[in-house]
Amino acid sequence: MIGHVSIGRSFYHCISYCLEDKRELSEKKKLALAMQDHLQHKGRAEVLEYNKCFGNKYELTEQFKDVRKLSRRVEKPMLHLTLRLAPEDTLTKEQLREIGRECAKEFGIADNQYICVLHKDTKEQHIHIVANRVGFNGKVANDSNSYKRMSELCRRLEKKYSLQEVLSPRVFLSSKDRLLPRHDSRKEKLKTDIQQTLKYAGSYLVFERQMQNLGYKVLKSRGISFIDDKKVKIKGSEVGFSLTKIEKILRQKKQLAIKNAGEVKNRNKDSLSISNSFNTGMQNEEKQSYNSGRTGGEVVKEILGVTAQLMNFEYEPDYIDPELQKIPKKKKNKPSLRR
């Protein structure tokens, strides 16, 4: 189970997001997605519980605002909590409702206004809780150490409901546990996507476009970062692909392609010249034997092979292919024989 905590100023926008379908999806797109993944994109939200409040988004917003006036000093009265189950985990609606109540109790809003909403448009079950941090007594729910509290809550709920255990964020672990290797499926997927994209991208612009087509937002400055469809930001260096390494791989692929293209061009030119000179004296089998060389497919295979070698994580950033470092020697002019 993964939890998320945020606070904000606007009740209306958060309540609207939780109660409505995604705005960027048209009715036609919702139907197409439902046919594709068998999920509920139209009418995705189901309210599991109204706690000391009721109504639609407008009525809820006004009720929250009325109670918020009891503490005018609070700048961010809205509390938004999200709990998402791991893949293949499922709970009944009543169990999800119980989890929502335990979450509200953990964050001190059990007696405050809140709604608990189930979203049905993702494969993993997840609930949203939108709450008023200001209680009917005028006191404000404390939001300190919220991420640590959420992490500890998730671990307790996993044990209580026999759910898959998800690792806590590294920052909340002991110094000893932080040294243990951790498997992060999100980073593994990003690493694989970068590797596959680099195999066929011929330039950085093509690489960036293909990563965007895979659902990533690419941020490039002094380094490079990727934001996936869950809004999670990961640095390229965290998965073994810094901006320097990506650019070096693409540069060496381009240089190798140019080199191979030059070799093929020269070979074809020489073959054509010799073929014209000895066309009448050479048999068809001899011509085929002489002109045998690397085909276009073999050149592509060589480029992909070099790319795979460069993408090896043992690859040193400063490494340059020795073949590309060779500088052609200038021919020395022979001294003229003057008497």
Score class of each variant (00 low, 15 high):
Val5Cys: 09
His13Thr: 10
Cys18Trp: 01
Cys18Glu: 02
Cys18Val: 12
Glu20Trp: 03
Leu25Ser: 07
Lys29Thr: 09
Ala34Pro: 03
Met35Leu: 12
His41Val: 01
Ala45Val: 04
Ala45Ile: 01
Lys52Val: 03
Cys53Ile: 10
Phe54Thr: 09
Phe54Asp: 12
Asn56Arg: 11
Lys57Phe: 02
Lys57Thr: 05
Glu59Val: 11
Lys65His: 13
Asp66Glu: 15
Glu75Asn: 12
Glu75Pro: 02
His80Arg: 05
Arg84Leu: 00
Leu85Pro: 00
Thr90Glu: 02
Leu91Ile: 01
Lys93Ser: 08
Lys93Ala: 02
Arg97Leu: 08
Cys103Glu: 05
Cys103Val: 07
Cys103Phe: 02
Ala104Gly: 02
Ala104Leu: 04
Gln113Met: 13
Leu118Val: 00
Leu118Phe: 07
Asp121Val: 01
Thr122Arg: 10
Ile127Ala: 03
Ile129Thr: 04
Val140Ser: 08
Asn142Ser: 13
Asp143Thr: 13
Asp143Met: 15
Asp143Lys: 06
Ser144Arg: 12
Ser146Glu: 09
Arg149Glu: 02
Ser151Glu: 00
Leu153Thr: 00
Arg156Phe: 07
Leu157Asn: 00
Tyr161Leu: 01
Leu173Ser: 03
Ser174Asn: 05
Ser175Arg: 11
Asp177Leu: 06
Leu179Gln: 09
His183Gly: 04
Ser185Asp: 08
Ser185Asn: 06
Arg186Lys: 06
Arg186His: 03
Lys189Asp: 01
Leu190Asn: 01
Lys191Arg: 13
Gln195Tyr: 14
Ser203Pro: 05
Ser203Leu: 05
Gln212Met: 06
Lys217Ser: 13
Val218Pro: 07
Asp229Gly: 04
Ser242Ile: 01
Leu243Gln: 13
Leu243Tyr: 10
Glu247Lys: 15
Gln252Phe: 10
Lys253Cys: 06
Ala257Phe: 07
Lys259Asp: 09
Lys259Ser: 15
Gly262Phe: 12
Asn266Ala: 15
Arg267Asn: 12
Ser273Leu: 15
Ile274Phe: 15
Asn276Tyr: 10
Phe278Glu: 06
Thr280Gly: 07
Gln283Cys: 06
Asn284Arg: 12
Gly296Trp: 03
Val299Cys: 02
Thr307Ser: 15
Tyr315Gln: 14
Tyr315Pro: 02
Ile320Thr: 13
Ile320His: 12
Pro322Gly: 06
Lys331Pro: 05
Lys332Arg: 15
Pro335Arg: 10
Ser336Arg: 14
Ser336Asn: 09
Leu337Ile: 09
Arg339Pro: 15
